[in-house]
């Protein structure tokens, strides 16, 4: 892979008392990409983020983030990245603007620039609430404030550790609207971790992590195409006749009491051709695509929800 990269790790590893939380990680994230790190709780996502953000020293291996080495030049990395942690890091006793200004001072921004930038961001994120301490904000607003804060100093790479965990679906959608808007308006690399499949769908490319190791990587489409095909489901006036006709034309089709099933690589692309080619009236068509959960199941033998709950159960005792 050529071109500038935002994150590159080679043999990155972190062990806790002999147990590897992250094991020989080789990642390359091109600049400008929205990159997702998918895995259940305890897969090593947060440990990796902590190493990339210079909060945790790698046991072995190297990591270069935003053009600087995390061990040799942590201050450069810190200056160039923004981080939204899983847990809230804003001061609940201060107002939104005070939080942004405090952040700007810690990053050495000029006061004039900080004033302009904080006003812009507060307006952009709908957080213009003077004199209201952040403690009185809703969960969604606080998350947006975290996001605004991480963008104050114009970072090149933005790390988001489970950016929408604990939010209701509506607030989650708002956060994603902002992230999309952000990508459109400025060149930025988004590096996010998630254990939510819907969220991974938003990414240009994802890496599936399990027990500290990469088990699969690619675009969501590639990964899904690898594990299975689409299923087109038809309801017609004559299911048996249609199934026979489709099989004759070389498709994998069958029929049952619930209609005709056609298994194909590109379901959405097949639908127009199917409808145009059939003389029998078609009542309904549905296309079912393999989900990322199928991807996860394929690579780890568990669904991501099973893996997550197993990790949380104390009886597991590892």
């Amino acid at each position: 892979m050529t071109g500038p990269f935002a994150v590159r790790t080679r043999g990155l590893r972190r062990t806790y008392g002999g147990r590897a939380a992250v094991c020989d990680l080789d990642l390359t994230v091109p600049a400008g990409e929205t990159f997702g790190f998918l895995g259940p709780n305890g897969a090593g996502k947060s440990t990796t983020i902590a190493m990339l953000c210079t909060l945790l020293r790698p046991t072995a291996g190297t990591a270069e983030v935003a053009g600087a080495d995390v061990v040799r030049a942590p201050w450069l990395v810190r200056r160039r990245i923004g981080v939204v942690f899983q847990e809230p890091t804003v001061d609940r006793e201060l107002t939104a603007e005070e939080n942004l200004r405090l952040h700007a001072e810690l990053y050495g921004m000029l006061r004039r620039d900080a004033r302009v930038r904080s006003r812009q961001l507060l307006a952009l994120f709908g957080l213009d609430r003077p004199r209201v301490p952040v403690g009185a904000f809703s969960g969604g607003m606080r998350r947006r404030l975290e996001l605004a804060r991480s963008l104050m100093h114009h970072p090149g790479v933005l790390f988001l550790d489970e950016p929408t965990v604990g939010l209701d679906p509506q607030s989650r959608a708002v956060v994603w609207d902002h992230l999309y808007g952000l990508r459109r308006e400025q060149p930025i690399t988004l590096f996010l971790t998630t254990h939510q499949l819907e969220e991974a769908e938003h990414c240009d490319r994802i890496v599936v992590l399990d027990h500290g190791r990469v088990v699969a990587q690619g675009t969501p489409q590639q990964l899904k195409a690898e594990v299975g095909a689409d299923v087109v489901h038809l309801r017609t006036a004559d299911d048996a006749g249609v199934a026979a006709a489709l099989t004759e034309s070389g498709l994998t089709a069958g029929h049952g009491p619930d209609g005709v099933r056609v298994v194909t690589a590109d379901g959405a692309g097949l639908v127009p051709r199917l409808c145009a080619g059939l003389t029998t009236p078609v009542h309904s068509v549905t296309v079912t695509r393999p989900s990322l959960d199928d991807v996860f199941l394929h690579h780890t033998g568990r669904t991501i929800r099973d893996a997550g709950s197993a990790e949380l159960s104390p009886a597991q005792g590892r």
Binding site: L102, G108, H153, H154, G156, P187
Partner: peptide, 29 residues
Amino acid sequence: AADLVRGDPARRVDGVGHELRAIGVLWRR
């Protein structure tokens, strides 16, 4: 102009002045 890898090299205070300002803002907090 903003850099795709390093972000926007916004005008910044550097060195001791920066640390002193950081102390100042934490004190004010």
